[in-house]
């Protein structure tokens, strides 16, 4: 595993550069941002943190409440 990860990183860095800056018309649309609705995401994280045993993943692990 220790050898595979750096190899994959290297491959990723050299292999994925397909899109040129002038080809970013679609990617530049606001709805293509990975953080389109940060407040929706924060609310979801808060609700699911207080009702389920998992949290985080998308960002830091949430929490900060004694939700019962």
């Amino acid at each position: 595993m220790k050898k595979i990860v750096p190899a994959l990183v290297l491959l990723a860095l050299t292999g994925c550069a397909g899109v040129q800056p002038w080809e970013r018309d679609v990617l530049a649309r606001p709805e293509m941002s990975l953080d389109t609705a940060p407040l929706d995401a924060a609310i979801d994280e808060h609700i699911y943190f207080s009702k389920e045993a998992s949290s985080g993943g998308r960002g830091f692990g949430g929490g900060g409440c004694g939700c019962n």
Binding site: V5, L8, V9, L11, A12, G15, C16, R24, L27, A28, M32, S33, L34, D35, G59, F60
Partner: peptide, 17 residues
């Protein structure tokens, strides 16, 4: 292969778009 590799790895803060 590159796409598959990309899929195996791990972003948190800044996004390119």
């Amino acid at each position: 292969l590159a796409a598959a590799t990309c899929a195996l790895l791990g972003s948190a803060v800044a996004t390119p778009v």
